[in-house]
Simulated scan of single mutants.
Amino acid sequence: MDSQFLLSQKLGEALFEKGWVLSTAESCTGGGVATSITDVAGSSAWFDRAYITYSNQAKVDMLGVREETLESFGAVSEPIVTEMVLGALERSNASIAVSISGIAGPGGGTAEKPVGTVCFGFASSNGWLCAETYFFQGDRKQIREQAVNHALRSLLSFLTRGSHE
């Protein structure tokens, strides 16, 4: 598997080639995607900003997530990551964005949403909108690392193939 640095480097090259700029909206990863991206020198050419919206109130205040959506679906849900990613895209100078919300553990899981449940939202200014849920295994650190890797790979896949894997 590619290292996060290599993935971030490839993502930066793909963004730069297209003249696109990225924004992130992260909850359970706590800025892990943004950290990976800004580990690459020159990332200011293709990275605009990161929203770390760990609390529900931060999601509402910073990204425009609706309280009704939070009440109906919970913070770890595809409707929430959809609102998060659209909020990040709308409130930034980005042409593409990713959002992440999940349960990294060790506590907080339920039968419906066990530890390792992570939802992702992707959106671009040219109309790409995708929400998906993955179930990762491992401890808190491993779940967060898998989530960051998935976000980076998915963005890179969209930019290089024009589709999402």
Rank of each mutant, 00 (worst) to 15 (best):
R66Y: 01
I52A: 06
P79V: 12
D48G: 08
L15C: 10
E17V: 12
V85Q: 00
R49W: 04
S44K: 08
R49I: 11
A94I: 10
T35E: 12
G87T: 01
G87S: 00
T24F: 11
L86G: 02
E13V: 14
F47Q: 08
Y54R: 05
C28T: 04
S55F: 06
G19I: 10
E67K: 14
V76R: 03
N56T: 07
A58F: 04
E17L: 13
M62L: 15
G31Y: 06
D48H: 14
S43L: 09
A41T: 13
T29C: 09
A25K: 07
G74E: 11
A97P: 06
E67H: 11
L86Q: 14
S43G: 04
G32Q: 08
T38R: 11
S77C: 05
A14C: 11
A94S: 13
G19F: 10
A14L: 10
A97W: 11
W46Y: 13
V33A: 12
Q57R: 14
G32M: 05
F16T: 09
E83N: 00
L22R: 09
Y54H: 07
E13M: 07
S23Y: 03
F16L: 14
Y51D: 00
M84H: 02
N93C: 10
S36M: 09
A75W: 04
G12L: 13
T38G: 02
V60F: 05
I37P: 00
S95G: 15
L89P: 01
G31D: 07
C28P: 06
F16W: 09
I37V: 15
E67Q: 15
I52T: 15
S72N: 13
S77R: 01
Y54I: 02
A45V: 07
T24Y: 08
R66H: 12
K18G: 12
A45W: 09
V65I: 12
L11Q: 09
A50W: 05
K10Q: 15
T69L: 05
I80Y: 04
E71H: 08
A34K: 03
A25F: 10
E13D: 12
A41W: 07
Q57D: 15
K59A: 07
A94Q: 07
K59T: 07
E71T: 12
L15F: 05
G87P: 01
I80F: 03
E83P: 01
F16G: 00
L11I: 10
L11R: 05
A34P: 03
S72M: 10
F16M: 06
I80C: 13
N93L: 09
G32Y: 05
R91S: 14
G64E: 04
L86M: 13
A75K: 04
T35V: 15
I52C: 15
A14S: 14
I37C: 10
G87I: 08
V85R: 07
E83I: 05
A25Y: 06
G19E: 12
A58N: 06
W20R: 14
E78G: 00
A88C: 04
V85D: 06
N93P: 00
Q9H: 15
V60A: 02
R49C: 13
L63H: 06
